[in-house]
Every structure is written in C-alpha cells, then in structure tokens.
Simulated scan of single mutants.
Amino acid sequence: MYKIGEFSKITSLTIKALRYYEEQGILCPSERDKNGYRLYNDQDYERARLIALLRGLDFSIMEIRDVISNYGGEEDLSYFLKEKQAQILERIAGEKALLKKLEEALPGGSAAGIIRQEYDIVIKEIEEMIVVSTRFRGAYSDVGKYIGSLYKAAGNKSFGCPFSLYYDEEYREDADVELCVPVKGMVQASGISCRKLPGCRTISTIHKGGYDELGFAYKALLDAAYERNLQPVSPSREIYRKGPGLIFRGNPSNYVTELMIPVREMDIPMQEQKG
C-alpha cells in the first residue's frame, strides 16, 4: 500500500490532482488507515496510469469517468481512443470550414462585401396535393435523416421534389419540421403519415447555393410580401429542387431551393400600420 505522498511520486500526479480525482469519483483510495490517511494499492496505480494517459490525450473529466465506468481492458481502451480520434477529426474539419469562411470574408475573398444573389419574387397559387410525411422536432440539418424512409414508403407513387414545412415563425434550434414527399395516391406505411395538403397562395423565390444562406432569400420574400401588403403565415415551405444525395452531399454551391411563404391580404395596409 502507498501513502498519498508516495503514490503521488510514482504516478507523477500532484496531491492536489489526486484529491480532485477523488472528489470527481474517478480515483478513490482503496483504503484508509486508522488515522484516516489515504492508502493506494496496485489496482489504484493502474487506474491512475489510465487517467494520466487520458488526460494527456485531452479527455475531459466527464469523458474519463465514462471510460473508467466501461473499461475492461486494452481492447476497450482501443475503442475509446478511436472514438476520440474521430471526434477530433470532425472538429478539425469544422475548424477548416470556419477558416475557409474567414478567408472568403476577408477583403478580396469571394464573400468580401457580402455580395448576394438577386431574387426574383413571384406569387404562386399552390394546388392541393397528397403527401407522405413525417413531423419531428430537431435541427434543420436533421431533414436528411428521414428522406430515405419517406421514399421507401412512397414507392413508385412518388413524384416531384421533396420539401419541408416549417411551422415556427422564428429560427429555432429545435425546429418544428414536417418533411414531405408528393405522391400520386394514398399510401399506407408504418410510422409515416399520408394526407392531403391543402392548396394556398404563396410568395415564392429561388435560392441557388448552400442552406446556410437561406436567410437572405427569406428576407427578400418578407420584404416583398410587406411591400405588397401581404401577411406571411406559416408553415413556410422549402422545396429541394436540387440538393444533397442520399449518400454524398455534393457541392452546396449547386443546390437549388425554392422557398414559399403562404400569404393573405392584410386587414390594415402596412403603410397605415407604420403611420
């Protein structure tokens, strides 16, 4: 058995660190002597070596706790290290994407001056249609998770482009989304809704490019609606004319999305509201 000072020396962990790890419940002394002093054994030593390794690889205390509670040997450790490696690679990819955006935003970059596309605004009457759909709460990017199951349910009855209905008036991290695929007739499938989507009058435009810039298209639609004394109502609609595939995302610059916002005549003209 080792006293805390001796244990600190053989593990290269400070006494302060050992006490902290005890508080966190990841490295507690196996015994205490009659005076209450901490005593560590060889099993504690092996755990301390594991903790030191993980800390050196930038594992957080929460991650270390998770590893220790599920650790059964070197084979298990290999899985944890591979998962950590994948997380780091994902983070690096995110940082590289951010660096690219920063470079584009610098003077002389492709995004310098915030030059945006021109949007042609049209009023469209949308007819009633039958759709298979699934409604969920989540991130906007979660849409891709459900598209495959909808097309499987629709089978050879699917036609036209998939689209999303957004029921929130504001931007949300847990958006209320209904993903739809138009079909030629009623379809029955477990976990999938099939219903008639009523027609409506909409204000519409086409956005060419990635989904991260859809806000510019929405602004153009809202500005145009108010100029025409039209009241936007939900749900808005995003029709994916050309987007990522089921496996590969492709070049976002080539995406084509039609945005539609249902509208109705304002009871009081916008000019009078401002006055």
Rank of each mutant, 00 (worst) to 15 (best):
G160Q: 14
R228F: 01
A220W: 10
E169K: 14
L179Q: 12
V233I: 10
E173S: 13
Y151A: 06
G108E: 05
Q188H: 12
D223G: 00
I192M: 04
S164I: 08
N229R: 01
E213A: 06
V233W: 01
I126S: 04
V233Q: 04
E103G: 09
G199S: 06
T134L: 14
G215M: 05
E173H: 07
S236K: 03
I115Q: 08
Q117L: 03
G113M: 03
K219S: 11
R172K: 13
N156D: 15
K152M: 07
N229A: 03
V233C: 03
G108T: 05
L230S: 05
G108N: 04
I126E: 13
N156Y: 08
E118M: 09
E170A: 13
E104S: 13
E128H: 03
P244V: 00
A225K: 03
C180W: 04
Q188I: 12
G138L: 12
Y240S: 00
R135M: 10
A154M: 10
G155E: 14
I126L: 14
S133P: 14
R172D: 11
Q188G: 14
E103W: 00
E104A: 15
P162E: 09
G215N: 09
E170M: 11
K145N: 13
H207D: 06
I130C: 13
S110R: 11
T134N: 04
S234D: 01
L214T: 04
G113Y: 04
E178F: 04
D120K: 15
C180R: 04
R228E: 08
Y240N: 00
C161L: 12
L197N: 02
F163D: 11
G209M: 10
C180V: 05
D212N: 09
G144V: 08
I114Y: 08
G113C: 02
K219E: 11
L150T: 09
G215C: 05
D174A: 09
I206E: 12
V132W: 13
G243M: 05
E127M: 06
G185V: 03
L222C: 01
D176N: 15
